[in-house]
């Protein structure tokens, strides 16, 4: 029998706790406004998460750059010939298209992002079908995730997100280095990961795009940028305009001579 309810009444962390402590297997469907999420569990551990219907299938692995379309097709063909219980992930690893660690790393980030986002839902219908396995083509995690760790981190992020969202209301906003600061910048000690984010900040990429390019969650990127904001190093702008869209540096920029002349003249005067 399905367990049905609303996370407004029975909180997400409570429900996940129930799955964890009950070593339950099955599929949890959640919906809020237009969003639909699918979580699949095996013996109390999270095996798979999907934003429906976009990443329920193997195409997600192509989107994440783990395999190419041809490899996906070959893996699917082999999967159809396998006995029941074989997974797409297992086939991909056994064929050597991607290693277990590569799949785990990318799918875990993807899965965690989906789960952590659920914690921001104020309400949402849920339906848990016990013993319902993931879809046959689902890119499941090679090693299932412990749910209690996800609960702890998810709850922590609710608090932190609240602070971050006061200054970064959306991940669709463009972030840029402050061109002409009013105050001298403080001396900063940045980690390699922070530099990695900073190097992507160009006034054209949105926070979500920086997250994708750095293969980190939006929360991770927003948290780092929040730190930059407090130092006055960067500022968050609006959503990208058509003008900014054209300014995304794909390769070397085409530059006008007049602009180079201005830089030369300025440098000469220093």
């Amino acid at each position: 029998m399905a367990l049905v309810g609303n996370i407004r009444d029975f909180g997400l962390s409570d429900f996940l706790y129930l799955i964890d402590r009950g070593d339950k297997s099955g599929t949890l469907q959640l919906s809020h406004l237009r969003e639909k999420v699918l979580l699949c569990f095996a013996q109390g551990k999270l095996l798979f998460a999907a934003q429906c219907p976009a990443d329920q299938q193997g195409e997600l692995l192509v989107q994440l750059g783990l395999i190419n379309a041809l490899q996906l097709e070959q893996a699917r063909q082999q999967l159809r010939a396998q006995p029941q219980g074989a997974t797409l992930t297992w086939v991909i690893i056994s064929r050597g298209f991607a290693s277990s660690d590569q799949l785990q790393h990318a799918l875990q980030q993807h899965t965690e992002q989906i789960v952590y986002n659920l914690f921001s839902w104020p309400e949402g219908e849920f339906r848990f079908e016990q013993n319902q396995p993931p879809p046959p083509d689902a890119p499941t995690l090679p090693r299932a995730l412990s749910v209690d760790r996800l609960i702890i981190e998810g709850v922590r992020r609710i608090d932190e997100w609240g602070e971050i969202r006061n200054r970064i209301p959306s991940s669709d906003l463009v972030v840029r280095l402050v061109a002409l600061p009013d105050q001298p910048l403080p001396k900063l000690q940045l980690s390699a990961e922070e530099w990695r984010v900073m190097a992507r900040i160009n006034g054209s990429y949105t926070l979500a795009e920086i997250a994708r390019k750095n293969q980190r969650s939006e929360f991770d990127i927003c948290r780092i940028v929040y730190g930059f904001l407090t130092t006055g190093l960067v500022e968050v702008g609006g959503k990208r305009t058509a003008d900014d869209q054209s300014a995304i540096p794909v390769e070397l920029p085409r530059i006008k001579r007049a602009l180079v002349d201005r830089i030369i003249n300025r440098l000469k005067s220093i």
Binding site: A179, L180, G203, S204, E235, A247, I255
Partner: peptide
């Protein structure tokens, strides 16, 4: 890469 200068003009940044 555009933002606004004090006069409201777009500020362009170039990188070396």
């Amino acid at each position: 890469m555009h933002q606004k200068s004090a006069r409201g003009d777009a500020v362009q940044t170039v990188k070396m």
